[in-house]
């Protein structure tokens, strides 16, 4: 083999790798409605999460394959759909209630960071990585069957207006799920709307959140949404936008990104997470990032599910 003598770095892209934990454990999602119900609601939330969080840690050890597991915990606060309270008021309250329940939050993320963080339009990048599952007969000659702003897990019912315009009466055809087992569970997910400015949907941001936790997001090869701690002289700010998009609260924490994620959520989140799965199974993740994760896992003797959607696990607890 002759060695390549002349190289141009602009012609050979590099992708930086990320440190990885075994499991990224999400301890909750906080919306304004929850906050408005006062500190009791938070206390109840963490009390209900605690046993499942403990179980998730044990499961992480079993799955790591080597008797130990690096688990980092995270918590997501909505500042995208509604802004409430302030970091200065909320963060100590949140940490206090978690601690009272015996939980520690290692990383705190703002939901708006999933749309845009550190000048990078993350949600738009992920949208440009969607490659829709093709229906049978797709030979490459037609563009994706995409309805702008929507993503489904199969084939939609053909539009009746097209058929009528062609002067035919066409009987209704049901939608179908790609790869359905006998019967379809068809889901059509709204990714965003314009009212008037682009607002990403909750499931879409949640899919970005999963990809971030799985260490699969890059911007031109560089990591995005990297955790930052407050400087020692810094206090918690008054506004959410002044807070780092992903705040490291525990210096001794395992890395934020992980081979797998586990999210402990009240069962009302189930439809959202179903939609997340529909999205994740149609995202073409950064190939180099995927390879780095696979190589690291192999070197550690840890098994990582091949498909991205299968790397996300959930506990849905009966909750408010």
């Amino acid at each position: 083999m002759t060695e390549q003598i002349f190289r141009e770095t602009t012609a050979e892209p590099r992708t930086q790798s990320l440190p990885l934990a075994h499991v990224s454990l999400e301890l909750g999602h906080l919306y304004m409605e929850d906050f408005e119900e006062g500190p009791d609601r938070l206390r109840e939330h963490f009390a209900r999460v605690k046993p499942w969080a403990d179980a998730a840690r044990q499961a992480a050890v079993v799955m790591s394959g080597n008797g130990r597991a690096r688990v980092s915990t995270c918590f997501l606060v909505d500042d995208y759909f509604t802004q409430f309270s302030s970091p200065r008021e909320l963060v100590p309250l949140l940490l206090g209630e978690a601690k009272a329940a015996g939980l520690e939050i290692d990383y705190l993320a703002r939901e708006s960071a999933c749309a845009q963080a550190d000048g990078v339009a993350l949600a738009a990048s992920v949208e440009s990585r969607l490659v829709e599952s093709p229906p049978e007969g797709s030979d490459g000659s037609r563009p994706g069957v995409r309805e702008v702003g929507w993503l489904s897990n199969g084939q939609r019912t053909p539009s009746s207006s097209t058929a009528e315009a062609m002067g035919r009466v066409v009987p209704w055809t049901p939608p179908s799920e790609a790869g359905a087992r006998r019967h379809s569970i068809f889901v059509d997910v709204e990714l965003w709307n314009e009212d008037p400015r682009r607002t990403w949907s909750c499931p879409f941001l949640a899919a970005v959140w999963q990809l971030a936790r799985l260490g699969l997001l890059r911007h031109r090869g560089s990591p995005v949404l990297e955790p930052r701690a407050l400087r020692p002289d810094q206090t918690l700010p008054e506004t959410w936008s002044a807070l780092p998009p992903l705040l490291r609260l525990n210096d001794a924490a395992a890395p934020f990104a992980a081979y797998r994620t586990t999210s402990v959520l009240p069962s009302r989140f189930l439809p959202i997470e179903h939609a997340v799965r529909v999205i994740l199974s149609q995202v073409e993740a950064d190939a180099a990032a995927l390879r780095q994760v696979a190589e690291r896992a192999a070197a550690e003797g840890t098994q990582v599910p091949e498909e991205i959607a299968d790397r996300a696990a959930y506990v849905f607890y009966p909750g408010p």
């Binding site: 141009e8 602009t10 012609a11 892209p13 990078v120 738009a124 440009s128 911007h219 031109r220």
Partner: peptide, 12 residues
């Protein structure tokens, strides 16, 4: 064509 990826540029 994709905001999050490099365009590859070679001048030699």
């Amino acid at each position: 064509l994709r905001p999050d990826e490099h365009v590859l540029l070679s001048e030699r």
